[in-house]
Simulated scan of single mutants.
Amino acid sequence: MTPRRGSSVRHDGDIDVSAHVRRSPSGRIPQWVLEEAQEHQRQAGMSSRQRRRTQRRATRIARQSARRWSKDVKRRNRAWRASPAIGIVLLAALWVSPDLFNQYALPVIRPYLPNASAPPPGVEASRNPIGVPPVVADIGGYRFMESPDPEQEMVAYDPCRPVRVVVRPDNAPPGGEQLIEEAVGAVSAATGLQFVDAGTTTEAPSSRREPYQPDRYGRQWAPILIAWSDAGEHPDLAGNVAGLGGSTVRNVDEGPFVYVTGQVVLDAPSLTAMMERPEQVRAVIMHELAHVLGLDHVDDPGQLMYGDNKGLTDFAPGDRAGLAKLGAGACVPRL
């Protein structure tokens, strides 16, 4: 039989629920209406005993759900009421024992306070050094930068984390980028420290450079900055100064002092004039990077760290002995 338009066809065994159900203005029947109608017809076909059993089961499930909800609410209320008391006890304990607060609470809270001066501790830190300094004879001929602690022989970068470097390329002579890469590779090989190219930056060099700049570099110590500049921007380059290099020292509690960041400022006009001998320009960059890592000037003109280079283009044995020691500094994961 061909059904007429608008009529419904019912097959044997089907429940015809479409004839007497509510429809939407569009004429469609919502699914929940169909399910409700089917349930009514199903119950209509049940005996009174079956309907009572079904009703008792539904009532039992509802009571169990209500009891579980009541227990959950009571647990949450107890926890909520206990939270202020726990907080007051902790604050009182920290107030009575400020050493505990300074040692455990403050290092966690400090990086997230306004105008924080240090990042969260241990960023990118490994349990063991990630590089190995070369084995060289300690023949002397080097000098370390002055340590804030007279009992600490030297200050170095943490060998358990990478040393990140950014470059401001403004005013760089042609080929300057390649010379920086070669110089960084040379000091990495001489120390075992693992350097990471963190790209370029627009940050200008400054004698008061902030070691922590989260808005620019994220929640970690600022990378070492290498910038081509001149005496107009950086007055310390005035006179017969081809470059400057140095680092910022930090420590935590009574632990060893370590370098956390630094900068190399290169005099672009004078070094551009020296580009006929690029190996000399590379030597200047290596010299300043060695300052950043912790070597000071020496009195021996046979070392690259002599204050007035006499034409050397590579590290000498004394330079290498000092750099190898600087590559074996202390790991300070709490900094």
Rank of each mutant, 00 (worst) to 15 (best):
S7F: 12
V9P: 01
G13H: 07
D14C: 09
V17C: 12
H20K: 10
R23H: 11
S24G: 03
S24P: 00
P25C: 06
S26R: 10
I29E: 00
V33T: 13
E36Q: 14
H40M: 12
Q41D: 11
R49Q: 14
Q64W: 09
R67C: 08
R75G: 03
A79E: 12
I86T: 07
A93S: 14
D99C: 00
F101D: 02
P111A: 07
S117K: 15
G122Q: 06
G122N: 07
A137F: 04
Y142P: 02
D158F: 01
P159R: 06
C160Q: 04
D170L: 03
N171C: 05
P173C: 07
P174M: 05
V184C: 02
A189G: 09
A190V: 01
T191H: 05
L193G: 02
Q194T: 13
F195Y: 13
G199C: 10
R208D: 12
R209L: 15
P211G: 11
Y212H: 09
Q213G: 03
R219M: 14
W221R: 03
W221Q: 04
A227P: 00
D230E: 12
A238S: 12
G239P: 05
F257G: 04
A268G: 11
M275C: 06
P278S: 08
R282L: 04
H287K: 06
H297L: 07
G302I: 05
G302Q: 15
Q303R: 06
N309V: 07
A316R: 05
G318C: 04
L326D: 01
V332I: 11
L335V: 10
